[in-house]
């Protein structure tokens, strides 16, 4: 389960009115912004949270980047040594890693895009006055609250070759005998992607629902009066209003999906034949099964670098599109 409020809220963060500072109570009013220290009070309040953050989140990130340039291994007695770019040179020729990388990208795109489209559709439906909407709203939130492991187990039961409901339904409809979805070389990845879409739908839907509140109703009504069809109303009125949130949530869910681990670990553990071995699973095995800490850290670095570039290109491209 992932928190997602950031996606929708970050939009309104930068424009908090600075005028408010002038009203800050007591002696600290308006000072902090000029760079002058605001007294020891705030530091005292911030420190309990700041220490663990620095120690266990910012620190490890830098440490991890450093590890990528060493030959660190688990359970070794000799001291770890700097080996420069050797890990990265090895990675370049590691076909297994690149295969896993490819699977990871297919997974992330394959989950994020349908998730976004389905979430948008659901959000638009839920903002209408339809009967049974309460049921859809409740059901749409449920996957968010479920442990990922349980989601994985649940879909294993659905996909089960004999006792699964999917194959039984297919047999009932005379659409063939069904198959062992999670074990088939070609069906495993799509099957896992469907689960990924199901599991992440709530966050996207809720964010977009919040975004739909930004749609100026007067504009939509005016467009309706002018006789604009549903598609044109969406294109010209709704979409521009929810665009920033749509952008944020699609980028975020792409990252979340690349980071996902538990779902696929429970469903297939990366099998069959590595067809669903996401980079996270690969790095996990490399680090905690084979003990290659340095090498696994290098994988992490490559992954982060490529993903940052992809995201930057996506966001810059989209933002440019907005200007035109």
């Amino acid at each position: 389960m992932r928190p997602m409020t950031e996606a929708a809220r970050s939009g309104d963060e930068p424009d908090r009115a600075p005028a408010k500072e002038a009203r800050a109570p007591g002696s600290r009013g308006g000072r902090s912004r000029g760079g002058r220290p605001a007294g020891l009070g705030p530091w005292f309040l911030v420190l309990p949270a700041l220490l663990p953050i620095l120690l266990l989140s910012a620190g490890p990130l830098l440490y991890g980047i450093g590890l990528a340039f060493t030959d660190s291994q688990s359970g070794r007695t000799e001291p770890t040594e700097w080996i420069g770019l050797l890990n990265f040179r090895d990675l370049r020729h590691d076909t297994l890693f690149w295969e896993s990388f490819r699977v990871g990208l297919v997974w992330a795109v394959g989950v994020t895009v349908p998730q976004f489209l389905l979430g948008l559709g659901l959000a638009l439906l839920l903002s209408q006055d339809l009967r049974m909407r309460w049921l859809a709203r409740t059901l749409a939130i449920v996957p968010w609250a479920m442990p990922e492991v349980v989601v994985g187990i649940m879909w294993r039961l659905v996909y089960h070759s004999d006792a699964g409901i999917l194959n039984e339904t297919l047999r009932d409809l005379h659409l063939g005998d069904g198959s062992d979805w999670l074990a088939g070389l070609s069906s495993a990845l799509p099957a896992v992607i469907v689960v990924g879409v199901w599991a992440g739908l709530p966050q996207v839907t809720v964010a977009l629902l919040a975004g739909l509140q930004n749609v100026p109703r007067e504009l939509r009504e005016a467009a309706a009066v002018d006789g604009a069809g549903a598609w044109r109303r969406f294109r010209t009125v709704t979409w521009p209003a929810i665009r920033p949130i749509a952008l944020a949530i699609s980028a975020l869910s792409f990252i979340w999906n690349l980071n996902s681990f538990a779902l696929v670990y429970v469903l297939t553990s990366g099998g069959p034949g590595g067809r669903t071995r996401l980079p996270m699973l690969f790095a996990y095995e490399e680090a905690f099964r084979y003990g290659q800490f340095g090498y696994a850290a290098a994988m992490g670095c490559v992954l982060v670098a490529v993903v940052s570039v992809l995201l930057a290109v996506y966001l810059v491209g989209r933002l440019k599109g907005a200007d035109q």
């Binding site: 989140s57 620190g59 990130l61 991890g64 800490f293 850290a297 982060v304 993903v307």
Partner: peptide, 15 residues
């Protein structure tokens, strides 16, 4: 939110 768990888990483990 964009934290790469792959990169964080190993150092975290060592620390």
């Amino acid at each position: 939110q964009a934290f790469p768990f792959v990169l964080v888990i190993i150092p975290l483990f060592l620390i």
